[in-house]
Computed example of a mutant assay.
Amino acid sequence: MLLRWPYTFAVALSVAVGGAAIYYSQTLNVGLKDPEGFLGPAYIRLPMIALLIFAAGIVPQSVHRYGLKKSLPGMVTILRTEWNLRRVGHVATGMLAFYICYVSYRNLKSYLPELRQGESGQQLLYDKEFLQLDNLLFFGNVPAEVLHNLLGTTIMAQVLAILYVAYLPIVPITVGAVLVLVRDYSVGAWYATAISLNWVIGTISYYLLPTLGPAFYQPQSFYDLPENGASALQMSLVRGAFNFKEDPQGGAIYGIAGFASLHVSVVFTAALFLHYVGAARWIRAVGWTYLGFTLLATIYLGWHYIADDIGGLLIGWAAVAIGAVVTGNAKWQKRRKAAAEADAEAEEARAAAASPSAAPEPAP
């Protein structure tokens, strides 16, 4: 029964990555930290998001069904008939698994300077090799500088910065929205599992090929950009990195890592998921468009090398594929389930036809 629960893998994954974060925290004598974000710490932010999305879903639904005057008792009716403890438990499990994987990812990412050091004792980095690959792919040019010349460095810089930073609230909001609004528990588990896998696989990629990213390794290529939300975030990460290296036991968290791009992987996961579940056309269009702008912004603003984005796309694809299998949403699993249900219905029909009670009564 446990193996058939759609959250079995997500819970096991969160326990494993959470255990790894605790282990290295104890080994390095660096306390676990809950990264701050908009609306405060994640343990406050995520429940707030879930409650807001819940309200945003149930209120218009009640008004539509029962009218404005009867919307309040209508909400009570919807709660009583459509929201049982099982459904609430699935939503809470998905949010909790996502939260544990995310916080563990941020802490494991913060341990990079301590765990990935070269022979000199300095942090091991592969930026030089990634930069050379970028120059090779762009025929001796820096990709970001080519984009700056092509797109300009005024309006486009601000637009891409806004879209890039918008990712921070968008991720937990989409997780909450899918868990709360989609009534198929396995589909909600699929998305929560896929996003959680991004954090875990992304962390592994950071340790396999640690890099800083173009804006941190070669900042002179981005001096022509005006101040924007992305550059403010980059400076915040630089300050956090310096503070962490000076005092790893302090309150700072190290957050600089290039390969692979989790911005790209998570947005690709969302777009691919929306495509597979057959979301409304305009929603899918928004997802794919946002992915395109995200890919552009990572290079233009100096967050990532081209290889980082390719790695992000691979992680996003793997997360969706693995998430589908472990929650029973792969195409072959659905076909097998549909075939089993059809066989069961056919067997019931045959049994009913063969039953004596099904035989016609003799004419008088």
Rank of each mutant, 00 (worst) to 15 (best):
264 V>D: 02
306 I>N: 07
330 A>Y: 08
249 Q>W: 12
243 N>K: 13
341 E>G: 06
253 I>G: 01
300 Y>W: 09
352 A>G: 01
315 I>N: 10
240 G>W: 02
347 E>K: 12
245 K>Y: 05
294 T>I: 11
276 Y>I: 15
347 E>Y: 11
301 L>C: 06
282 W>S: 15
243 N>P: 10
289 T>C: 07
263 H>K: 03
351 A>T: 11
255 G>C: 04
248 P>C: 03
266 V>C: 14
268 F>V: 02
243 N>G: 04
320 V>C: 02
273 F>T: 04
263 H>W: 08
236 S>L: 15
295 L>W: 02
305 Y>F: 11
312 G>I: 02
350 R>V: 11
313 L>W: 06
357 S>G: 13
327 T>V: 01
295 L>S: 08
242 F>T: 15
257 A>L: 07
276 Y>L: 15
271 A>S: 06
362 P>T: 00
301 L>Q: 05
261 S>F: 07
286 V>S: 05
303 W>H: 09
244 F>E: 05
266 V>R: 01
307 A>N: 02
307 A>F: 05
300 Y>R: 10
252 A>Y: 01
309 D>C: 12
285 A>C: 06
271 A>Q: 00
240 G>P: 05
236 S>Y: 13
295 L>K: 08
252 A>K: 02
340 A>G: 08
312 G>R: 01
359 A>T: 13
356 P>I: 08
340 A>L: 14
286 V>G: 07
268 F>C: 04
322 I>S: 01
355 S>A: 15
320 V>I: 06
274 L>E: 12
313 L>R: 08
359 A>F: 12
328 G>D: 00
287 G>I: 03
306 I>H: 00
305 Y>C: 05
248 P>V: 00
252 A>N: 06
289 T>L: 12
350 R>E: 14
336 R>L: 10
301 L>T: 01
324 A>Q: 05
321 A>Q: 10
281 R>K: 12
345 E>A: 14
303 W>Q: 07
329 N>T: 09
319 A>W: 09
257 A>C: 11
251 G>M: 14
317 W>N: 04
354 A>V: 10
270 A>E: 04
254 Y>V: 09
241 A>Q: 00
307 A>T: 00
359 A>C: 09
362 P>A: 11
327 T>K: 01
302 G>N: 06
271 A>L: 00
278 G>E: 02
315 I>S: 00
325 V>L: 03
234 Q>Y: 15
354 A>N: 15
302 G>S: 10
260 A>F: 11
319 A>E: 06
320 V>R: 00
300 Y>P: 04
299 I>Y: 07
274 L>G: 11
241 A>S: 06
321 A>K: 13
317 W>D: 05
274 L>A: 14
286 V>T: 12
238 V>Q: 04
254 Y>T: 02
261 S>G: 04
243 N>C: 13
287 G>Y: 09
272 L>F: 10
346 A>I: 04
313 L>A: 01
237 L>V: 09
254 Y>A: 07
362 P>W: 12
321 A>G: 07
323 G>P: 10
238 V>I: 15
247 D>Q: 14
302 G>A: 03
318 A>Y: 08
245 K>F: 13
254 Y>M: 02
